[in-house]
Lab assay of single mutants.
Amino acid sequence: EEDDHMEFCRVCKDGGELLCCDACPSSYHLHCLNPPLPEIPNGEWLCPRCTCP
């Protein structure tokens, strides 16, 4: 299965362990989110761009 998510964080543009949005190709480091997440959430996760009205 091919993964179309970005291979770098949308905020800092660095690679590493990234959290991928379930609705778009964006990826983020947990510490780059505002507010930062302490751990990878269970289940579906939507990035700030997808949850913003």
Rank of each mutant, 00 (worst) to 15 (best):
E17H: 07
C21M: 00
C47Y: 00
D22T: 12
C21Y: 00
D3P: 09
E17G: 07
D3S: 15
W45H: 03
R49V: 12
L30Y: 11
C20E: 10
A23G: 11
A23P: 03
C32Q: 01
D22F: 07
L19F: 11
M6E: 07
D4Y: 15
E2H: 05
S26W: 04
C50K: 02
C9P: 00
L46I: 14
G43D: 06
D3A: 12
S27P: 03
I40T: 14
R10C: 05
R49Y: 09
G43Q: 12
P36S: 11
V11I: 13
L46T: 08
L37Q: 10
E39H: 14
E1L: 01
P25S: 12
M6G: 09
C21Q: 02
R10L: 09
H31Y: 03
H5G: 05
C21A: 01
L37S: 12
F8L: 12
D14T: 07
P38M: 02
L30I: 11
S26D: 12
R49G: 14
E17N: 09
H29K: 00
V11W: 06
C24K: 04
K13I: 02
L30M: 14
P38L: 15
R10D: 08
E39G: 08
D22Y: 09
E44D: 13
C20T: 14
E17P: 05
P48F: 15
H5A: 05
I40A: 06
D14W: 06
C12V: 01
C24L: 00
C47E: 01
E17S: 06
G16V: 04
E1N: 15
V11T: 10
C21G: 01
L46F: 14
P38S: 08
C32I: 00
P41M: 05
L18Q: 04
A23E: 15
C24A: 02
C9E: 02
H31R: 13
P35M: 06
D4A: 07
V11E: 15
P38G: 08
N34P: 03
C47F: 04
E39Q: 11
P36W: 06
R49F: 12
H29D: 01
S27H: 12
P25L: 07
P48M: 04
P48N: 08
L33S: 03
H31W: 04
E7R: 10
S27G: 07
G15H: 07
E7K: 04
P38F: 09
Y28V: 04
L18F: 00
C20D: 15
E2C: 04
P41Y: 10
E1K: 13
L19A: 12
E44C: 10
E2I: 15
G43P: 10
Y28S: 02
P25M: 08
H5N: 14
G15A: 13
P35Y: 03
N34C: 09
W45T: 01
K13V: 05
G16L: 05
P38I: 02
C12K: 02
C32Y: 01
P48I: 05
C50L: 02
E39R: 05
I40Q: 14
E39C: 04
E44K: 14
E7Q: 04
L18S: 01
D3C: 01
K13R: 09
L37D: 13
E7Y: 03
D3W: 05
H5L: 06
P41N: 15
P53A: 09
L18A: 01
C9F: 01
L18W: 00
S26G: 10
T51L: 10
L46D: 02
R10T: 12
L46W: 07
R49S: 12
E39L: 04
S26M: 08
K13Y: 04
C52I: 05
V11P: 01
M6R: 10
G16D: 11
H29R: 01
R10I: 09
L33Y: 03
N34G: 07
H29P: 01
F8W: 04
K13E: 15
E17A: 09
L30R: 11
T51C: 14
V11Y: 10
H31E: 13
C50D: 04
G15P: 08
L33E: 03
M6P: 10
C9N: 01
P53V: 02
D22C: 10
W45K: 03
E17V: 06
N42L: 09
H29V: 00
L37R: 11
F8T: 12
G15F: 13
E2A: 06
I40F: 15
L46A: 10
E39F: 06
N42I: 04
N42E: 11
P35E: 12
E7F: 06
Y28H: 04
W45C: 02
F8H: 07
P35K: 06
